[in-house]
Write a protein that binds this DNA or RNA. Structure first.
Lengths: 197, 197
DNA sequence: TACAGACTAACAAACGTTAGTTAGTTAATC
DNA sequence: GATTAACTAACTAACGTTTGTTAGTCTGTA
């Protein structure tokens, strides 16, 4: 139990640090210090740095989807399900940069086996539920394109929130959920409704 | 001239490597080897690793915008200008991963001064031209949101092209420019046209 | 002769990791 | 209930390697 507890604490700390700095910029000593221990102690819990990183990815990625899937399978009209989903995803994106940054780092790394894990183990169920909702709203739509587009909008709008302030027309108001949620909902819905049925 | 030539060669090589591996995973010896020289020789051209990295960013980012801006300022209908712009940006994204990956890495790093450089020196002019086109098509639209959304779609769709194959509904066909260009054009246009004038 | 730009050799610091030790806890024995 | 053995999980010390970088040297060109 102490074992498990320490392990969880290491994973949580490592997640924050890996997300912020990336695999190579982060040393085992950094992680250990943040966990209030010494680097060699980490090896009592994880074989090596790679294994700790993989465990961190699984730890973070497995937490995200359940709430999203629940939201897509509730018993309300499809369009409202989609709006709820987008709102929740936005809140998750804004609430913690850990998932978002780790995800984007994985996209950059382009490691085939890890991309496959990401797609099959982490995203597959959510995507399929989302496809159903898209098709329910408009059976002629392209659910894969819509899903990927929505992910792009979600990840980019929140990741670029610091950049936004320096871009023309960017303001603090546009970083807020109150602004981003309805805007993203509308761009997706507009596309769904515009495609001829 | 040899000086300038070598410098350019180093920058081009460094750009490819920094884009692929990131700042920390890449050593001066790696860069030197790829340039067919020894690491200390790099210091004849750049003060240190940081300066080489900054020079690389400037080298890469300054090449991208001119063609895009030209495309937005030609003398054709606004809607066609926008379509041409999106098509060209897609081709740039697909043609080389260097710009795309370096840009995303900068978004991850969240370094305020470099984000500011990115926004003001690299993207500002393109964004402003793009805003004009958006407003020409629909004066009631939100050009900042549209610009950011378009960037999100462009970066994500091309960066996630490897991931796409493992996602439900993903296929090689959907990685192609023939598929992505019109799809992205349409999602933006639909949103532009849907906003009440 | 001067100088740019390549080189070799070498530095200190930081890296991931291992070995060996120690303190605290649990379980079984007397 | 006390004693011992076994185990967990922390520690210190240290390893070999790689890192960014500097100093000093050689070579070709102007």
């Amino acid at each position: 139990m102490t074992e498990n507890n320490t392990q969880q604490r290491i994973l949580q700390t490592a997640a924050e640090l890996f997300a912020a700095k990336g695999f190579d910029a982060l040393s085992m000593r950094d992680i250990a210090t943040a966990c209030e221990m010494k680097a060699p102690s980490l090896y009592n819990h994880f074989k090596d740095k790679q294994e700790l990183y993989h465990a961190t990815l699984q730890f973070v990625f497995s937490q995200q989807s359940p709430a999203l899937i629940d939201c897509l399978q509730s018993d309300i009209p499809a369009q409202q399900k989609l709006n709820d989903f987008i709102a929740l995803a936005c809140r998750q994106m804004a609430g913690s940069m850990i998932f978002r940054q780790l995800f984007i780092r994985e996209l950059l790394e382009q490691d085939e086996s890890r991309l496959q894990f990401l797609a099959k183990e982490v995203m597959n169920d959510t995507c399929k539920s989302l496809h159903s909702v898209f098709l329910e709203i408009n059976p002629k739509c392209d659910p894969h394109f819509l899903t990927t587009s929505l992910m792009g909008l979600l990840f980019f709008h929140f990741q670029a929130n610091s950049l936004r302030l320096y871009l023309p027309g960017g303001s603090e108001k546009m970083q807020s959920l109150d602004y981003l949620i309805p805007s993203i909902q509308q761009i997706i819905l507009n596309h769904l409704n515009a495609t001829a049925i």
